[in-house]
Design a protein around this nucleic acid. Structure first.
Lengths: 193, 193
DNA sequence: CCTACCGATCGGTAGG
DNA sequence: CCTACCGATCGGTAGG
């Protein structure tokens, strides 16, 4: 990939996050790069190629991180803690692209749409396997793994809606707090539900 | 509000959820209602009025539900459980409108945008107050209330991304599982983090 | 509720 | 990388 194309994708991530894919125009994108809209097409095939490149680049990051977790660690608790920390790292280091990955992929057309969904599910399956392993090991209580994975990922993914790089919490602090919350909840004292 | 306008808003919710606000065209909306686009303007002022009506109708539902929770219950645990159940009820009974409320409000312009953010924050403040009350009562462990409220709401709001009315879980079952998860987490057995 | 139409803007191409 | 331009579509108005 050429440097110029990387610049285009970087500017596009920001623009798409701010305006949504449909409302992010090629003319606005060109203006950000101080060029004319038709010149963009010397570097890219189409608007959808931009969306597709961003979505699959992020999908690759997540899937690769999950593979590393499974390669390095043995215990489910270590795997879960590390997977959460990795997920938050990728999100916070790529806030614009993360928004595209989480919400704008719906604008993809086939066959890219199907391939994207497959990768996304492959990544989520990684979390389900970790949880099931932890239950089998007796580390986690028996629970609905599918539901738990969904709930964990939802609290992780919402970070992009409120995280500010210059805010009071670092990504590692967020990971620590969130991991603690996921493992023990509000730590209720009187069980009377 | 006239019946015809209600029909327009209902069709618009669905269309906006499916395509995003910017990409949902007045011509498509008109087609859904078997009329011509200019005829819509006999019932509405502008496209933005549609967005605004949907967003504030949902905001009203959430804020009203939170007021009822505080009117009826005294204990923080009951308040939290009920607030979660109410939130999930509103989401699952208005899936299309919920998506607009959660994601498309960004397309509002001032002064509606500011008013919307105020109502949204008022509602979230309701959760923070419940959590703080629970801590003061000694029911919940000391924690970062702002962070906990955000995490709870994120796991609630993600429901609209995967919930299907004909799926295997009812809204009440989701509320039960989620409440349990929020209160006790994965219930780890060996604390070694 | 319609037809006819406005100016603006869209993604993208031709040709250099 | 540009100018010039294409057909399509946008939100909305005029007038009936």
């Amino acid at each position: 990939m050429t440097d110029r194309k990387k610049q285009i994708l970087l500017a596009a991530q920001k623009l798409i996050r701010e305006n949504g894919y449909m409302a992010a125009s090629m003319r606005d994108l060109a203006k950000q790069l101080q060029m004319e809209a038709p010149s963009l097409y010397n570097h890219i095939e189409s608007k959808e190629e931009i969306l597709s490149d961003i979505c699959f680049d992020m999908a690759d990051r997540f899937v690769t991180a999950m593979q590393e977790v499974n390669d390095i660690y043995f215990n489910a608790d270590q795997k879960l803690t590390t997977a959460i920390r990795n997920h938050i790292s990728i999100l916070t280091e790529n806030l614009d692209a993360s928004h595209v990955f989480l919400h704008e992929w719906k604008n993809l057309n086939e066959p890219m749409l199907g391939r994207f969904k497959t990768m996304r599910d492959q990544y989520e399956e990684g979390f389900r396997v970790i949880l099931q392993t932890g239950i089998d090991e007796g580390i986690f209580e028996e629970n609905d793994v599918k539901f738990a994975a969904l709930t964990i990922l939802s609290s992780l993914n919402w970070i992009v809606e409120w995280y500010k790089p210059d805010g009071s919490m670092t990504p590692n602090q967020i990971a620590e707090k969130l991991t603690s919350f996921i493992l023990t909840g509000l730590k209720i004292r009187n069980i009377n539900f």
